[in-house]
Design a protein around this nucleic acid. Sequence first.
DNA 1: ATAAGTAGTATACTTTTGTATAGTGAATTA
DNA 2: TAATTCACTATACAAAAGTATACTACTTAT
Lengths: 131, 131
Amino acid sequence: MYSELDKLIKMSDFKGIIQQAGATERCPQNYVLALTDTMNVISGKWKLPIIASLLRGKIRFKDLLDNIEKITPRMLSKELKELEINSIVVRKVYNQTPVLIEYQLTESGRSLLNLIDTMIDWGLTHRSNVW
Amino acid sequence: MYSELDKLIKMSDFKGIIQQAGATERCPQNYVLALTDTMNVISGKWKLPIIASLLRGKIRFKDLLDNIEKITPRMLSKELKELEINSIVVRKVYNQTPVLIEYQLTESGRSLLNLIDTMIDWGLTHRSNVW
DNA sequence: ATAAGTAGTATACTTTTGTATAGTGAATTA
DNA sequence: TAATTCACTATACAAAAGTATACTACTTAT
């Protein structure tokens, strides 16, 4: 697909996730951007637990708090905002009384399931390689 | 493949990457372990640049330092040790004089290329979804 | 009127992660 | 003999990420 990583090595003046000297022309900057986007979406202690909970369907703040062990409202709020900014999550406000707020994944958010599966596959294979 | 993420939700007393209440029996702990393994291997500022450089072939400490822009010897050393402990990298010592030391990926390390490709795919699709 | 639930925010703090800068020791070339 | 290269290590510091604890504003149930 991108067959050799040659393609994404070196990207001097980008923030520097993938970079190596002397290969600028062979390294499509878009690949590097795409990779850093992906890293930003999944990295941190709480992103995957939140996404995993959301993969089960729309859910309210309070239920996320209860489902995700030991997360604080501060972190949940912060992470949801970040996921919303990155178009992974949508915050829906239903103007009933009392107001109802639900979080749900976007199409991009749902498509993370495939990536997560690939990560699990790699991890399982790695464990079988090593032990 | 793991079709529904149900399978990996809730894992109370594991470190807590993926967890949700009331689904213990449907959540194979191995999947959670595999996923956290994967996250540990790729997360941090320098892991992917190092792995990307190593995907081009065996390489020496000094050349990694030169190839990866702005990394310090301290971080390179630290990350290589971690990658070695996790069986992603092998440190080979050739007892010539002067001694020659080369780092190379293990089979598990090389197989990260597929994961990286999947991450790039997700990122590219996400960008096309959003803009 | 009081307590409890929802959806958070505010402030202060600790831990983790990464940076800056200098130095070591062995060998090697000038 | 002195400077340079290689492969790092040591110490101190700064920045980012995460935690603890309390609080707010609104609504509803008792």
